[in-house]
Each structure stands twice: as structure tokens, then as C-alpha cells.
Design a protein around this nucleic acid. Structure first.
Lengths: 205, 205, 205, 205
DNA sequence: GATGAATGAGTATTCATTCAT
DNA sequence: AATGAATGAATACTCATTCAT
């Protein structure tokens, strides 16, 4: 598990950037422990081993750092997913790969999982941004006549909620590949595949 | 929409019970506005038009009233669902009826919807209690060989998350019967029905 | 130990008097437990098994019941001491008898001891009233040329503080006749007796 | 009268220490006015001309500042007494000097007197700590065969209560050297000296 | 006269935010 | 830029007191 994502980004940068990154990393660790609602500024600065006043040299309030931390993580997750999917052209396989990769990625980074989950209720906008890519792969599958379904916002919301459920379950009960597989299976069923086909792709894709 | 559920229960009762009910009703209205986390005692007493000290004559702290309010609503919802389902014996039909009735019920009572949704994260135990009935109907469907699926805790969690998604969507975008129907359709697919069968039952059940 | 002093006084009286006495007795018991400062009205009414509002039918505030309770006990203590000393005419013997009797009396009634001790700081007037009799016996001893001392207010205060110290010590460490005897000895020394004479009278008086 | 004991200790120190000392001094002044029981945090911060929240940057609760203030004063009193008694080797003279010096010292510093008096009931441990030195000087006098008495805890308690009575009397009625002298006289009598000897040493020691 | 629910002023405590160093 | 002490608004909770029943 990577504890210092933002700091690593800022290694060569100037002091201002490094302090800022330390605060972002600290915020993520604290959110993972206490959740976004219970977050205190002093928790962040204590975790970053900085004076509390330093926070305000970099962020204007709690929401700002929350948003930045969440978007920073989301961006990195997207980048990692893209890397894994560059060569995949089949719609359903892309959906399954993205779903499984997303789930497994955040499950092994519980700090990231926590901020992703909290974001879905605390920063609803983020959820839409993060899952934009999903929509594209679904559209691709439809263009390939692999999905027989009407793509509505609610369909996306359902799929997202299944993905979140899988993350949350593994966060609570421990990582378990079978859960990720079932989540993929469920997603494919919602996209119109028969149970048999869904299971096949969920297992191999 | 019923704004005074607990008060109606206490209409004939003594003053103590009536005040207590007024506080519970007020708590629910405030939760619907601000959510459970942001709830302040003074919000509740202001909404109930009582002095702040009165709160402590009836509840020892915030969690106590939250729990009571949530369980009170959950109990009433269960009661109403039971009434609608007394005569239904077919497993899949029961599942669809319960799902649709639950969603539609809380969607027309946004205050109830808010507390049910918040409860899933703030009082996780409640969620399990509320959705116990769902598990029974699923088991019934399996006994009737209508569902081809392994009933795991995660399956229930997925179904619950789909139901919550449908409620949340309609709370945000307005009541829309088609959303409820799609949610039922999705639930049946997760329970192993083919898309065709699922759609048929979701529409008629 | 007598738990219901005031009630016993009011046994034949009307209901008003009996309720009033119940409150006084309850106040004394609660003071013995928590002290005068920490006393709550609701503690008293709860201990008396009455509704809190009832308190105000009988007393206008906390100080009133405290004063009445303290004076009631003080009066009874005085009455009991008088009874024991009716026939004693020797000044020093009267002083020793009164001192020893007072200490032993409240030590076996810890509730009374508590209110007497607290009164010395909380109701300073009471202390003067309670120990008026002491002054008379000292004056008697002086008239009999048994005490070689100038009787000042400070002398009385010193004697009172020795008596309180003896009570407090036995309240903390358990009743112990030797402590009472030493207190008497000390009192006589302050009144000008030689150690040898003081000890003799303290032991026999 | 020194109104700023702790501040004087912290004159050269950093801001944190100076604010802390200001709070301690303020606490002592407020205790002198209202007593320990009635002390409110806001009284302290108002007296120190600081915001109420500042209190919690330095102390975690009321008891903490009370304890620190009382021990701080006690320490200083002990230091001053020690300085006066360095060269005295005669037991009775040491006892009289310490008693008189203690009384006179706190009588001219009524704020200190108040906290010492309140401490005897509110922080009983402190009393024992403060009067440890007394016990040593008494033991010395016994070793020198100047005192004919059995040194028990109750004897110490009696002596302490006489000292407190002298302080309290002068606090109420104004400083009066004769009171201090009488207190010394009484203490020596309790330690077994004859009235004549006691008076002689009390006046010269 | 007793009841006990309601009241609301009073107090402790937390924590985001400011600002002098 | 970092520091960390000070700030004070916000909030929970207590309890003496009132008053309708």
C-alpha cells in the first residue's frame, strides 16, 4: 500500500509543493481513519507533522483539500486503469476489466477506497467525473451490439452503486477475488447479458 | 406526504408521549433537510417549537433519537409492506412487490427516504434489520426453483444498494415509476433471471 | 443511626408537615453523600420519593432547606447535650462532657456529622449559634477559677476547629474513643490547664 | 501583596509560558474571591483578559489548573519558609517559627491564603504535602526531649486545623500579630508544653 | 397540595480560522 | 513559508424554577 502518493509526485518540486503534498497525503490517511465528516484540520496537520496554521497557507478550507485529495486520487486511479486497458478493444471486456481493476486497486489501497466511497456522498460531482470512462466503454459495447440496454444516467448509477458495494464489502470483510468477480457479473447482467454469458466474461475478462 | 407520523401515533396519549413524538417528527424533518451527521439538538427542538432543554427530558443524546426515529420509520415501512404482500405466494413476485413498494413508499415520503438512506451508513445494524424480510422472499423463490443463485451476504448487499440507488435517484430527479421498474428488473437479474423474464415480472409483478 | 429525624418529629402532624419533613430528611441524607455544594434539588426530591415540583411548595430555594436542615439538627444535638449535662456544675467537666458528647453524637450519626461539618464553611452563622453553649461553660469555668485564659472569639474558633477535626478524623478513619479523648485533652490545654490536669479531666470527665 | 506570582516566574519565558502563568494568577485571584467550588472557566479567562478558548490551550480542565495553582503556591510558601529557618536547630523554635511564618505569609497574601484554605478540603493530598515539614520539626523536638507527646496523624491534623483557624480569623478580621502568637501558643500546648513555657517560646521564638 | 413536563439561562468544551513572530 | 498561540462562535448539556393539570 502506497502511503505517500502526493509526496511522491512532488519529490523534485519546491518546498511549497512538498508541504502541500504532505497535507494531501495526511488528509487521505485521516479520512481513511475517521471519514470525511469527522475530519478535523488539526488531524491533518498533526498527521503531516506540521503546525496547524500551515494548512491555511495551502488550502482555504476543509472542502478544498477534500476535493483536491479526492480528485488527485481519482486521477491516479484513472491513469492506472487506462494503462491496463490500452490494448483492449472489446466493449464487455473493457467494462469488466475496468470494473475489476478499479475494485481491486482501491481494495489494496484502503486509504483510497475510503476517500472514493466517502466522495460518492460528500462530493457527488466527483463520482460522475470518475465514472465517465465507464460510460464510454458501455457505449462502445452497445456500438458493438454486445449490450442490449438503454444507457440512462440511472443505469450508470446502478452500476456505480454495485462497484461501491463490492469495495465496501471487501473493506469490511477482507479482500476476496470472488466478490470482485461477482460484482463484474452483476454489472454485465445489468447491461443485458444473460447470466451464462455474464458469468463467462466476468471470469475470463 | 405525512409530516407527523409519530404524533399521529400518540394522539390520544399523555403529554409526555406527545412531546416525545413531536421531537421524533421534528428530528425526521431536520434529517431530511440536513442529514444525520449535521443534525443539531437545537435544530430538533426549534423544529418542534420546544425549548432546547426539553430534548433531554426525553432522550439522552443525539444517537438515541436518531436510532428511535430510524427504527420507528423502519417499523412502519415494514408494516405497510407486509399489508400489501399478505396474499402473494410467488417468490419473484414477492421480491418485486416488496422492492417496488419500498421504493415508492419512501419516495413519496422524502423525509422517510432521507432517514432510511442515512441509516444505511450511520446505523448499519438498521439496514440489516430492515432488509431481513427481503432475504426471506429470496429464499422462498429459491425453494420454488425460480431463482438460480447462491444467496450470500454480498448478494443482499448488492440488491440493497440497487434499491437505495433507485430511491436516491428519484429523490434527486423526482418520482418516476420507470426508475422503480428498472430497479426491480435489475434485482431480478441479479437473482439469476434472464433479461427477458426479469423485465416481464418487473413490469407485471 | 437515625435516618428519619424530621419525620419522627412530624409523625402526628398533617400531610404538609410530613412532606416537609420528608424533604428535610432527604436533604440530610443527600448532603451526607455529596456535600452541600454538590447538592441538587432533584437529588432531594428523588431521595424523598416526591416529584421535583413539590420542593417549591415547601422551600423557596436550596439555601432555605440547607439552613433549616442544619438548624434542625443543631437544635436536636443541643437538646441531647443539655439532657446529659443537666446536673453537672463543674466548668471543666461541663466543657469536657459537652465536647465529648457532641463528637460522639455526630460520629454515630454520620449524616448529622456531614451537615455540621459542611455548615461550618457554608453557613458560618450556624457554627456560632451551635457553639454558644460552649462559651457559657467556659465562662463558668473561669468564674470557678478553673481556667486561666482570656476568652476571645479566636479561642472559641480554635476549640471549634479542634472539635471539627476530631469529627472529621473519625468520619474518615472510623469511630475511635481515644480520638475524642485527645480532642478533649487538647481543648482543656487551650483553656490553660497543664498537660497533666488536662489529661486527668479528659479521661474522667 | 503580590498579585502576579506566576507571571513573575515567567517574565523571561516565551508567550506560551506567559499566558499559562497569567491563567494561573487569574485563577488564584478568582479563587480568593469566590472559592474553588464556585470557580468558572470563564471567570479565569475574563480575569486574565483572554478568550475563553485559550484556557484549553493550557489546561485540560478546572481541576488541572486548581491543582497546579495550589501546588505552585505551596511550593513557593515552602521555599520562603525554608529560607527563614535554615539556621534554626531547636525543635520548638522551628515549630513556632514555621507556624508563625506560614500564617503571616499567607495572611499578607490573601489570595494565597484562600487557595491554601480551600485546598485543605478540595485537594486533601496537598495538605499532607504542605505540612510534611511540620512533622519533621516535631520529630526533631521529640528527639531533643522538648516535646512530651505521642505524634499521631490526628495530632498533626489538630495542629493544622489550628493554623488554618488562625489564617481564617485574620482573613476575616484583619491581620493581628496577637492571633498568630496565640496560635503558636496553642500548638506548643498540644505538643505537651506547659502553658507558661508555651507562652514564653511563642512570644520569643 | 402534589405532580412532572417544559423552560431557558448558564456553563463547559471544541475547533476552524487569524495573525504576530 | 512555517509556526503555534489566541480567538470566539457554535454547540451540547445541566438544573433551578415555573406552572398547567
Amino acid at each position: 500500500m502506497k502511503e505517500r502518493y502526493f509526496r511522491d509526485q512532488a519529490l523534485g518540486a519546491n518546498k511549497r509543493e512538498r508541504t502541500r503534498s504532505a497535507l494531501l497525503d495526511a488528509a487521505i490517511r485521516v479520512i481513511a481513519e475517521k471519514g470525511m465528516e469527522a475530519l478535523k484540520i488539526s488531524d491533518i496537520t498533526t498527521a503531516a507533522d506540521l503546525a496547524n496554521g500551515t494548512f491555511y497557507n495551502h488550502f482555504s478550507d476543509k472542502n478544498e483539500i477534500l476535493r483536491e485529495a479526492a480528485y488527485g486520487i481519482a486521477l491516479e486511479v484513472s491513469r492506472l486503469l487506462d494503462a491496463q486497458m490500452e490494448e483492449i478493444t472489446d466493449g464487455p471486456t473493457r467494462v469488466v476489466t475496468a470494473t475489476a481493476a478499479f475494485i481491486d486497486l482501491v481494495v489494496v489501497q484502503p486509504d483510497w477506497a475510503a476517500i472514493m466511497i466517502d466522495s460518492t456522498s460528500y462530493l457527488p460531482q466527483l463520482r460522475d467525473d470518475v465514472f465517465t470512462y465507464l460510460r464510454k466503454d458501455i457505449d462502445l459495447g452497445i456500438a458493438q451490439c454486445k449490450f442490449d440496454v438503454d444507457v440512462t444516467p440511472f443505469l450508470i448509477e446502478q452500476i456505480v452503486s454495485l462497484i461501491i458495494a463490492a469495495v465496501r464489502h471487501q473493506l469490511t470483510n477482507g479482500a476476496e477475488p470472488e466478490i470482485t468477480r461477482q460484482a463484474c457479473d452483476s454489472v454485465l447482467r445489468l447491461l443485458g447479458l444473460s447470466p451464462a454469458k455474464a458469468m463467462k466474461i466476468a471470469r475470463t475478462g
